[in-house]
């Protein structure tokens, strides 16, 4: 009996802790969501870049919608475990998800995975962040100091470039870059930017393909130098970095990693409108934009229709890379 008492005591302590930390809910007068909590699926690890970005908009949306938004993080299959969960949930607007371009495409464009869902199964709500790709080198690199000298070096020496993974925007960038600049740079894929950064700093690779958000801090720390950015205009957060399209070395390359929000296709249009408007307010909120900028992320709001069109274009581009990616039936 005494042992049972001890077990109970411990359990009670746990329960006490739990209720001490519970959170409240607010009620609302709107038809949707009518005070019911909404689930936001972020298919990436909590504390990571995508997760933090998602949680950034949550408070603003909660205020607008008058309800709680619970963020859940079912990770796996490069995001598809979470996305499949969204597509399995009812299309009633009480579940929406963060989606990432171009990460979402290989999950179904690769025939060996046998996935039947595609980008068409998603109803776009808004784009949040567009993080353009860059090429970075060590700040103390002596063999080349800018893009032109880098290309010259790459044409006559074997060069390795780290990327954040296979099928990521960095991977696509490298393919396009090699084609446009006439170089044969070898890709060394890692598991995220930290691998690329460690490899570059440690002199194990010659350069790294990454995104503005990732290199901002290292550049401020004077560890890295960004030699090119692949956007249409100069980056707001790194205005001094040369824009590839303006250098005229090769064909146009514009590539980025984007984080957006979507719900399941088939959700009633009125509900879509409510969600989209709430997102618009949250994403265009100046305070939120400033906070994101502090983390090196460039907020780039796009509405549902614009973004849906953009997503289809990106899908076409991805399809064109099937050979490069090794997708075969």
């Amino acid at each position: 009996m005494k042992k049972i008492a001890v077990v109970c005591l411990l359990l009670c302590t746990g329960v006490f802790l739990a209720f001490a930390g519970g959170s409240g809910e607010s009620s609302s007068a709107a038809a949707f969501p009518a005070g019911k909590p909404i689930t936001l699926i972020c298919p990436w690890a909590p504390g990571g870049g995508s997760d933090i970005g998602a949680r950034m908009v949550v408070p603003y949306m909660e205020k607008k919608l008058g309800t709680t938004i619970n963020v859940t993080n079912p990770t796996g299959a490069s995001g598809w475990v979470g996305w499949e969960r969204l597509l399995a949930a009812p299309a009633d607007g009480y579940t929406f998800a963060m989606i990432n371009l171009p990460t979402i495409y290989p999950g179904y464009l690769d025939p060996s995975l046998g996935r039947s869902k595609t980008i068409d199964d998603f109803q776009m709500l808004a784009n949040h962040v567009t993080d353009f790709c860059v090429i970075a080198i060590r700040a103390d690199e002596t063999r080349f100091t800018d893009l032109q000298s880098f290309i010259r070096y790459a044409k006559s020496n074997p060069v390795t470039m780290a990327t954040t993974g296979v099928g990521t925007d960095d991977h696509i960038l490298l393919q396009l870059f090699n084609a446009a600049a006439g170089t044969g740079i070898t890709m060394v894929p890692g598991n995220g930017f930290k691998d690329s950064y460690a490899a570059l700093l440690g002199k194990h690779v010659d350069a790294a393909a990454a995104n503005v958000g990732e290199v901002l801090v290292p550049e401020n720390n004077k560890e890295l130098k960004t030699i090119a950015v692949f956007s249409q205009e100069a980056s707001r957060l790194m205005p001094h970095v040369p824009v590839w399209n303006k250098l005229g070395i090769g064909g146009d390359i514009v590539i980025s990693s984007q984080r957006a929000f979507a719900c399941k296709k088939g959700t009633p249009p009125e509900i879509v409108k409510i969600l989209a408007e709430a997102l618009q307010e949250a994403i265009t909120n100046q305070e939120q934009i400033a906070k994101m900028a502090e983390m090196g992320l460039d907020v780039d709001y796009m509405g549902p229709e614009d973004f849906a069109k953009h997503a289809k274009n990106e899908e076409e581009r991805m399809k064109g890379m099937a050979d490069v990616m090794g997708w075969k039936k």
Binding site: L11, V15, L17, A18, F19, G21, G22
Partner: peptide
């Protein structure tokens, strides 16, 4: 109760 309190609420 324990599982509920810890996992679901907290």
């Amino acid at each position: 109760l324990f599982v509920y309190g810890l996992f679901v609420r907290l």
